[in-house]
Design a protein around this nucleic acid. Structure first.
Lengths: 151, 151
DNA sequence: CTGTATCCTGCCAGATACTG
DNA sequence: CAGTATCTGGCAGGATACAG
């Protein structure tokens, strides 16, 4: 069976379509949302990151990205290929060889991811602290000198 | 009932934990992943964007972000609050009033989102073109002078 | 107004088996 | 080696009802 066109994760059918603004995050066909949806995919980011160092074969990726299944790896690679972020090259060796690499477009996106990673590492402390504070306030299991009575 | 500590979407229990690298996207507790997981949330980005113009009340957000349900709005606001990205202020008016606003941390993150939006709008043409080319190659329903025979 | 509590449903990741 | 096909369970997200 030939490759089927899997239109999922691209756009959803927005029934009411009550909007009259164009190209907004509030619209379903917003470019930002499309990109965000790609970045939303944990595995996609992992793959993009992995390919930063150069082209890799299918099983190399599978080995590197531990705990990813063949199916999900294939699906994610297809999506990235479809978006023009990675390139797929087949070599007619005896057991066929397939190599994946970043396209120029994929490289520019990767730069953004790097920037985001930088932000994340720079601010992770603050986020973690905020979470701890929030949790402490919400669930004071034993906040300080408070005695908890249980039946 | 007091607010419960909802630890979902924060970290998952990684059973094998086969990694010996620290702070990598390959680790589950990678800062980048944490941030990415927030951005992955469609509604979260929408809220962050909405708050860019200033503080908003719960129902304002609900009205602005069409098609979001109360439950999901509340959940998302809690997550963002927990991460220290937005602040929640309660006014003891007769029907209680609650206002949400960006924290400084949230504002810096928003700048990154803006950058990403810029990239998206700049490159959406290329992505769309790549998708069209991919689909055409994968599903040549009637690519050119090809006759399709059906029973 | 600003939530919480339930129930319900669809979709997607994971596991598994098979193929060129 | 690099996939495809199929089944399944869990859970995020929607709808709805109710409450302080």
């Amino acid at each position: 069976m030939p490759r089927k066109k899997t239109d999922d994760t691209t756009l959803d059918t927005s029934p009411p379509s009550d909007g009259d603004m164009l190209y907004s995050v509030f619209e379903d066909l917003c470019p930002t949302r499309l990109v965000l949806d790609r970045l939303a995919d944990k595995w996609a980011v992992l793959i993009l990151d992995r390919l930063q160092q150069g082209p890799l074969r299918f099983n190399s990726l599978k080995r590197d990205i531990k705990r990813i299944t063949q199916k999900v790896l294939t699906q994610t690679l297809r999506k990235l290929e479809r978006d023009g972020l990675i390139a797929r090259q087949v070599f007619a060796t005896v057991p066929v060889t397939v190599e994946y690499s970043l396209t120029p477009l994929g490289e520019t996106l990767n730069e953004f991811i790097s920037g985001l990673a930088h932000w994340a590492e720079h601010n992770i402390e603050a986020v973690l602290a905020a979470q701890a504070a929030f949790d402490a306030a919400a669930a004071p299991s034993t906040p300080a000198n408070v005695t908890v009575h249980r039946l």
